[in-house]
Amino acid sequence: MSRSALEFHGVSVAYRDELVVEGVDASVPSASLCAIVGPNGAGKSTLIKAALGLVPLASGSVKVLGGSITAVRRDVGYVPQRESVDWEFPVSALEVALMGSYGRLGLFRRPGRAERAHAMDSLEQVGLAAFADRQISQLSGGQQQRVFLARALMQRAQLYLMDEPFSGVDALTEGAILRVLGELRQRGCTIVAVHHDLSTVRERFDHVLLLNKRLVAAGPVAATFTSQALQRAYGGRLAVMVDAAPGNAVTSAGH
């Protein structure tokens, strides 16, 4: 198997008659925590969907865990943006976590006792075991986000693709999510997350893709996440002093 968990080769994606991702060549090393960063409309979510095979490619190819997505789908976990979810749907937190096992179960087969135990474990990991029977809309935004993390954990994947896992969550949830992501990486999993908060990229991630339709820069955070690269990604609209004072100088830009 290759050393890269995820490779993009000249990937372009079009919606209707407009290119939203153009000729991206990049790779994400195994067992890394990678952030995809860029302004609004930069194609960050689209790039993740392209990796999952959820949008057709206009050109190029994607290698996931060394193969095509259809072959390794079971080893890829996905946490979509909050908008894709029907919050009024009648499911409990435990049932949402159980959905992580659906990919492995065939027709007519329902999740059994083993899956339920595992789903409870996953909820336990994100600190929500006590809320297993709550309907999903009765949880707070941060708790909902953690339930989705539990659903991804349920998949026992090697690669996790997350679309803004930290959007709209409080500090407590942020800490819980980060702890889980850290544990996953220790086990050799790769995490790729769309991320909006530039001030926290350095402390949370070790790899970064800077995107603005085209790839601006990619590589280890220390070497790649520089003010010049950010200027290029955000088109100079951003006064950045990342190098001077990491972690506090940059305020949110892409919201």
Partner: peptide, 9 residues
């Protein structure tokens, strides 16, 4: 658009 993408790549 498609033909332009293909020719450029």
């Amino acid at each position: 658009l498609r033909s332009s993408v293909q020719s450029s790549s």
